[in-house]
Computed example of a mutant assay.
Amino acid sequence: MALDSETKLNSLGFAKPPSETRVVVAMSGGVDSSVVAAKLADEGYDVVGVTLQLYDHGAALAKKGACCAGIDIHDARRVAEEKGFPHYVLDYENIFQETVIDEFADSYLAGATPVPCIRCNERVKFKDLLETAKDLDADCMATGHYIQRMIGENGPELHSASDARRDQSYFLFSTTPEQLDYLRFPLGHLPNKDATRALAAEYGLSVADKPDSQDICFVPNGDYASVIEKLRPGAAEPGEIVDHEGNVRGQHNGVIHYTIGQRRGLGIGGLSEPLYVVKLDVDAKQVIVGPKEMLSTRTIPVREINWLGDEPFDSREEWHVAVKVRSTRPPREAIIRPLGPDTAEVELLTPEEGVSPGQACVFYDTDSSRIFGGGWIWRGY
């Protein structure tokens, strides 16, 4: 049945019936994306489920229960069968290896603390998979991410999820305006994860009680070092643990076993005050330790900035926003000073501890839930 001019847009923002609106749902096999697919199918949309095989499921890197592992592909397929829509598995293993895993290993070896989930969204899910959705003649692509897309005066805007505890804006800051125009996030408005599981039960999904995945999909039990050693044999070369004055305090069995801000497991005895990892010198094979106050940072160099504001990023000398420098920390007030179209110096009004190269710096509006994008922290000057 055709819609007349008085009929409102459907729930995905299109002026046509759901049955004439094709939506590709990125299905990881977890409860979130399964609920999105079931919800849209239940509303009468032309749903096509797509699951990505991102790595060799028989390899040592894979682990049961991780995102996009073998059991998850089975679970996604089962949900599609239960709800009666087509489902495809796409082999993106080579793309994932080249654009996510290899960079993760190289960044870690360079002393950075990478966030591969951001690169996966940026380079695989919201790039290659999104193009695949367009090839399937889909009107849009939907995911189970906890974030909101709202229409503002100048078009689609990215906003934090209603549930701050589930908000995934830190991992999605690099979503471009063009991608945002095509994407939909049906769960971002829900009050909490219990509401998602209640919907899964309501739709009778077999994954309703499936636990959430906690770790990076290709990092078993959060053991970064063992994965790096598999990917880059010989990477764990021993060296010295030195303090900020250059005094040798101990030995280590590889810089890759340490992160900025680490206190435990340093193997340094007889200390009058706690020491923390304040720097990793990969070239010298040194782990530099110092007192906690050395971790405090006020100025952060940021590059590869993706800007989602209404005005060009470098059209102003300063932007007064809030920034988040780690996914587990709340946004803090800051001043962004553009140095070019995609580089800037960020000044924190309150110093942060443990700011590390390789992490993201995400920009938030101080007066609303809007996200203005973000960039990557680097060593700078």
Rank of each mutant, 00 (worst) to 15 (best):
L183I: 12
H57C: 14
E81F: 05
K279L: 10
P357F: 02
A344R: 04
Q214I: 02
N10F: 07
V287D: 07
C361N: 06
I118V: 11
D243Q: 02
I335Y: 02
I71A: 09
E353A: 08
P331L: 06
V278T: 09
H74L: 14
P291E: 13
L199S: 10
V362C: 00
P341K: 11
Y55L: 13
P116C: 06
I241A: 01
Y92D: 14
D314F: 05
H87R: 01
I241G: 01
R337V: 10
L280W: 08
K134A: 00
E273T: 13
D167C: 14
P17Q: 00
G354D: 01
L172P: 11
K230G: 08
A59F: 15
A360I: 02
A112Y: 07
S33E: 05
G29M: 05
G204T: 00
Y108H: 09
T132W: 11
I216C: 12
I305G: 13
P220R: 15
K125W: 01
P211N: 04
P211W: 08
V124Y: 00
L295S: 12
I73M: 10
E93P: 07
I228D: 05
D243V: 04
E122V: 03
N10L: 03
I118R: 02
V362M: 04
W319C: 00
T21V: 10
S327E: 07
